[in-house]
Every structure is written in structure tokens, then in C-alpha cells.
Design a protein around this nucleic acid. Sequence first.
DNA 1: ACCTGAACACCGTTCAAGT
DNA 2: ACCTGAACACCGTTCAAGT
Lengths: 219, 219
Amino acid sequence: MVLDRHGLDGMSMRQVAAELGVTVSALYAHVSSKDDLLELMYTRLFDDFEMPEADPERWQEQLLEFARAGRQRLLSHRDMARISMAHVPFTAELLPHVEGLLAIFRTAGLPDRIAAEAGDLISTYIDGFVLEEGMWQDRAAQQGGDGSSLARPDWREMADDMQNYFASLPEADFPHLRALSGLMVTDSSDERFDIGLQIILRGLASYLPDREDRATSDG
Amino acid sequence: MVLDRHGLDGMSMRQVAAELGVTVSALYAHVSSKDDLLELMYTRLFDDFEMPEADPERWQEQLLEFARAGRQRLLSHRDMARISMAHVPFTAELLPHVEGLLAIFRTAGLPDRIAAEAGDLISTYIDGFVLEEGMWQDRAAQQGGDGSSLARPDWREMADDMQNYFASLPEADFPHLRALSGLMVTDSSDERFDIGLQIILRGLASYLPDREDRATSDG
DNA sequence: ACCTGAACACCGTTCAAGT
DNA sequence: ACCTGAACACCGTTCAAGT
């Protein structure tokens, strides 16, 4: 199959067929449904995804890298976050990744109960975040117009507008929003992703049995 | 507008129109697009959503209750999690809820930087979780068949199958999955939701400046 | 084994026309 | 002010028929 370079948005079966120079119905000889096709693409997407050797001294960095890399893959093709969400990752191709995640959690010292749920939480976070940012992009592009007349949305300008809006709210009703107006819309997607993940990782760390700054006592 | 009782799945404009005893095109006199309609429903959905008075002694319980209540609302109508995700909650109707969340974070003592991102994280979690569980339900229902011949999916049986599958994996390649096979698929959605949220809340708590068990010193 | 053409049962949206 | 009817430009999927 040669349909890995897409970038399409709505990605309809008809468009895929057209791109392959073939009728729509021909696709159904190779694939039982659109969902099936997306599933194939999804599996391919993580084909060469390498899981690190679990290192208990670096478990947080390893998870951060894992999550960032996962987000990047999902961002590289449209709709991948949605199909990722629809999947329980218990297929033959994806199980090694689940195992790799569990290895990181358990060798780090997390209790089994938490280790069993942590992968789920991180996956939900990655999928949810990517899906959300995709939707926001779509909405912004949609509002910005078809590239014809109006100037394109201008990200920084929007942020400024928001900031001014928050600062202009009545003090009596919105003291906290006013106080944080300078912090609410300033970060890039990358920063927001990392901060959210950091909070999750610190939550996981809180379950570690011994939380002292153990000097690297080799023995 | 009288279209708040739906439960519809695909919820097409045509179905809405039929339910109201009207042609499709008539809808466009009241609503500029399907997205607009969903937006109206979404706003209505949180009309009477009460935010608690921020209590620094109970901030974690308050957030847990907030998240549970939010999830319940989103579950009550199809597609609401998706439209929720597409929205930055900075509309006149939703701003009071954002303010209420910020109040909880800040009176609890979280640093402003974290408070500004925490609401985002929790919202992404709620939306992502609900969207995911909806998709899993859809898939299960789809596979289970149209209620005709085969016995319906039977939740517990599926969990047992999964557990057996994990336990049967080769020890050399999947030691951690094998070790956790009894914990990977046992929890209900409600439990998984709470555990994930608990991890996030403990992550937030890790940013509190003084983390001692302060006796309730009044004064 | 792989494809085509035509059809079926849907979508969201628009627009002239009616009362 | 509110609705209808018909159309436009799409969907995913199926199925008999071709080579």
C-alpha cells in the first residue's frame, strides 16, 4: 500500500481513491472499511517507534520524550489522534510499546496499581491534547477565512486581544482571571503540552515509596 | 428552542428537523450551521452548573467533584465531549466556571503559572476521557452486532479474555504485562476516571509551597 | 486477482419561492 | 417571520459486471 503520504484533512475514501488513480470501489478489495484503512495507517505510524531501555534514574525524562515523540507522530497525519483514541492499544503491533511503558513505570518503583493505569492516563492525555489542538487549528483556519481577503489570524494578536479582554473584566466578578490575564494565553502548544505532562509526571512521582534525594549510592 | 432531549448518536440536521416536524432548511433560519447548533446545546448543557465557593482545605475534593460532574454532563448527550474539545471556554457563559476553577487553584496556594494551566489540563483530561469512552462503547456495540444473533458483548467476559491473553504472553518479551495482567482491565470507567484524576491532583499538590501536615491552626 | 460503473442511502448547506 | 422544495456537492458502502 502506498498511501502513507497524505496530509489530507477530511480524507475521504473518494479522495484516497483519486490520489491512487483508481475508483472508490476498488479500495474495498483491499480494505473492509474506512475505519479499517485508518487502523492500518495507525499501526504503520508506530512501526519504527523505539521504546527506550527503562532507566529508573531517568524515568521522568524517558516518559517526557515518549510523550513528545508520540504527539509528533500523531500530529504528522490528520485524524490519527481520533483513531488512536478509538483504539485500545492491545494489538500485536502495539503491545511492545505498552510493555515498554510498564517497564519504565515499574522499574521506577511505582506501585503496580498505579503502573497499570499510568499508561492509560498518559495516552489519554496525548490523544486528547493532540485532538484538541487539531480542532482549535481547524476553527482558527475556518474563521480566518479562505486565505482570500482578510489578513490571516495572526496568533500573537489574538493572544493580545484575549489578554486585554481578561484584563477588562469586572474586578468584582473575575478577580482571578484578571490576576492571571498575563498567563492564560501566552504559552505555545509545545509549552502547554510539556507543563501538563510535567504535572502528571509529578503526580506519578508522588506514589514512589521512598522520596528522599538518594545519592547515587552504587553497590 | 426545544431540542434538548436527544440522545441521538450521529445527530444529523435532518434528524433534528424530522424530530421537530419541520424541513431541514427551516433550521437554518434559527441557526447558522450545525456547529452553531451544537454550540448552543453545549452552552445550555452547563447553564445551571454551580461552582463551589473555593475552600482551601478541600480543594482536591472540590476538583474531584467538579470533574465528576463535568463528565456526567458530557456523557448525558452524544458528541458533547467533541464539541467541548473544539471550544476554548472563553465565552460569556463559561467564563464564570473558569473563574471558579482558578479560585480553587489560587486559594489552595498553587503558583500562578500552574494555576493558569491546571484548568486546561483538567478540561483536556475530562474531554479526552469522555470522548475515548464514547468511542470504545461505539466500537464494542458495533462489534457486538445489531442485537440480533450473537449474545451481547458481555463486559466481564471480555475482561477475562484480555486477562488470559496477557497471562499467556511469552515471559521473555512481556514480563511486566504478565505481572500486571490482573490489574490491566479490571477497573470500571468510573474507577479509571477517578484514578487518573487523582494522579493529576497529586501532581498539582506537589507545587504547593508548604507541604507539611499543618494542623488546622485557626487565627 | 483486480478493477469499473452505477446505484443506495445518507450528509450539510443554499436559495428561490411561498404564506 | 417562518417555512417548503428542490437542488448542489459531497459522503461510505455494495454489487453486478467486466478483463
